[in-house]
C-alpha cells in the first residue's frame, strides 16, 4: 500500500516523538497539597491562571491516575513515609516537581520537624523556588518540565537525564 492512496494530509515522524508529544501535553498532576504552596497550586489551577491551557487541569486524587506529583509545601518527618508511599503508587512514567523552598530544601524551617528537602525521599525533576511560588513561577516550572519531557528519553529517562538527585529507584513501579 502506498501513501498516495490516502486522501488527507499526513505527517511522518518517529514513534518516540509522538509518545513524547502525547506525554508532554497531558501531564496529570496528583493532588499532593501540603501547606501554603497548595493554595497557590490550586490558584494556578483556577480560572485566573488556568492550568488547562497546558492540559493539566485534571488534578487526580488517585496516584494511580497521575503522572506528576507537585509536592506543594513543607514535608514533615511524620508525612515523609506517606509521600513516599503515594509516589510508589504512581505509574511510570512519573515526574516530581518540588514546589517552594520548604519542599526543595527545608527553607526557613531548619529544625527537628521538617525533612530538609523532599529529594531525600523521592527523586525530584524540577525545583520551583519561592515562598510560596506565585502561579507564574509554578507555570514556569511546569513549562520547564514539559521541555524536559519533550527533549528527554522515553525509555531510560532517569539515567540519561541525571534527574532525581542521583537516586536510583529499586523496586519502584510495582
Amino acid at each position: 500500500m502506498g501513501l498516495e492512496d490516502l486522501s488527507h494530509n499526513f505527517i511522518t515522524g518517529n514513534l518516540e516523538t509522538l509518545v513524547k508529544w502525547a506525554r508532554r501535553n497531558s501531564v496529570w498532576p496528583a493532588t499532593f497539597g501540603l501547606a501554603c504552596c497548595a493554595i497557590e497550586m490550586m490558584a494556578t489551577g483556577a480560572a485566573n491562571y488556568d492550568l488547562a491551557r497546558f492540559g493539566m487541569e485534571v488534578f487526580r486524587a488517585s496516584p494511580r491516575q497521575a503522572d506528576l506529583m507537585i509536592v506543594a509545601g513543607r514535608l514533615s518527618q511524620k508525612m515523609a513515609p506517606v509521600l513516599r508511599q503515594v509516589y510508589d503508587q504512581m505509574m511510570e512514567p512519573k515526574w516530581v516537581i518540588s514546589m517552594g523552598v520548604c519542599a526543595s530544601s527545608g527553607g526557613m524551617f531548619n529544625n527537628y520537624a521538617l525533612v530538609q528537602g523532599v529529594d531525600q525521599v523521592v527523586p525530584v525533576d524540577i525545583y520551583v523556588p519561592g515562598c510560596p511560588p506565585g502561579p507564574q513561577t509554578l507555570m514556569h516550572g511546569i513549562i520547564t518540565l514539559h521541555e524536559l519531557i519533550r527533549t528527554g528519553e522515553i525509555m531510560q529517562r532517569r539515567q540519561s537525564s541525571g534527574a532525581g538527585a542521583g537516586l536510583t529507584l529499586e523496586g519502584a513501579g510495582r
Binding site: Q77, K78, G106, N110, N111, Y112, A113, Q116
Partner: peptide, 19 residues
C-alpha cells in the same frame, strides 16, 4: 510528632535539630 519520636522538642535542652 510521630509515635516513636524520642524526646520532647519544645524543651529547652532539646536542640533545634538544625541540619
Amino acid at each position: 510528632m510521630p509515635e516513636d519520636w524520642e524526646g520532647h522538642p519544645l524543651r529547652k535542652d532539646y536542640g533545634v535539630g538544625r541540619v
